[in-house]
């Protein structure tokens, strides 16, 4: 075994021990509320086609980029409260906050919307923080962050008007949306508090339903702490025809931009006809561990990154 690997893994040991504790506390949180822990395929014949998520292929199947579709098939079959830690794979995503293989925590509740799911998230993270010995605040990269509830909410419209000077819910410019987000909006969030960003433009609804009172925005929310994008929540779209239309558009865009032909997730669309009203969320566990370990980069909280595998 090369010497530098021994040193590296010894240095990461404390973080990896804390990582294991965090998994345990999250399981406690959900099990105490009668959620069922499930496992769904990591390798499947079809995944959700998404314009900016590039999947790995495995023969003519795909490695999961998220467990969402299979978890919704469980909901459609009558499961009410489920959660899962899932290995997810996204090609080309490598940086301080990214590794092409990472762990996603997803949970879903029947008869709930994105607001309810954000409340779950607040409770989950403060519960884990409490068990790890944090009181009302955590310290991340020199910044003290007050995590007392409730966390401040801001709509996409308000955040962009404040920091970037335009409103993405009245003007559709997805490319400017992403660059301005990184350059202006994210740095404009309060440094000493978590931020919940709500109501994404309808064009970026993905698998969320549109707000019935304001169809220009989707019932989608994201959670940010210490500059880290931690989680993405939806009031789940339960309209199979609308979902099929969004998938067709994404498949077309992927064909044009990446010259890749993605299959339509037919089994999911069939199951979706029975999908009840529900809310769900995907939370990047490695980043949550980074936050609780005050780790500068994702490498510090994984035993082996893609470069070290």
């Amino acid at each position: 075994m090369p010497e530098d690997e021994v040193i590296r893994l010894a240095r990461r040991r404390q973080n990896l021990e804390r990582r294991a504790l965090i998994f345990q506390y999250i399981r406690d949180f959900f099990n105490e509320q009668d959620f069922l822990e499930v496992e769904t395929p990591i390798r499947a014949p079809a995944i959700a086609p998404e314009a900016f998520i590039v999947p790995f292929q495995s023969e003519d199947w795909y490695l999961a980029a998220s467990p969402e579709l299979h978890m919704k098939r469980l909901l459609a079959a009558g499961y009410e409260k489920i959660y899962q830690f899932s290995h997810c794979f996204r090609k080309g995503e490598r940086g301080r906050w990214h590794n092409p293989e990472f762990i996603m925590l997803e949970w879903y509740r029947r008869d709930a919307d994105y607001q309810k799911i954000i409340e779950d998230t607040e409770k989950l993270i403060t519960s884990v923080a409490g068990k790890l010995g944090f009181k009302k605040s955590i310290k991340y990269q020199g910044q003290t962050i007050d995590i007392s509830l409730p966390w401040p909410r801001i709509t996409v419209s308000e955040a962009y008007l404040k920091s970037a000077g335009w409103d993405p819910t009245t003007k559709n410019d997805p490319e400017k949306f992403d660059v301005d987000f990184i350059d202006k909006v994210l740095p404009g969030f309060a440094k000493d508090r978590p931020t919940v960003l709500l109501e994404y433009p309808a064009e970026q609804a993905s698998l969320a339903r549109l707000n019935p009172g304001n169809p220009k925005v989707a019932e989608r929310a994201e959670v940010f702490i210490g500059g880290l994008e931690l989680a993405n929540a939806y009031s789940e779209l339960a309209d199979a025809a609308e979902q099929a239309k969004r998938f067709r558009e994404a498949i077309e865009q992927i064909k044009n931009e990446r010259e890749q032909v993605m299959p339509m997730p037919e089994k999911f669309l069939e199951a979706m006809k029975k999908l009840p009203e529900c809310g769900g969320i995907a939370l990047g566990i490695d980043r949550l561990v980074m936050l609780f370990c005050d780790a500068e980069k994702i490498d510090d909280v994984m035993a082996f990154t893609a470069d070290e595998a």
Binding site: E50, I53, P174
Partner: peptide, 14 residues
């Protein structure tokens, strides 16, 4: 080079 990417968005390189 700093790679970053909003979960559902495009990759951004700073």
């Amino acid at each position: 080079v700093e790679f970053t990417k909003p979960g559902k968005g495009r990759s951004v390189y700073r």
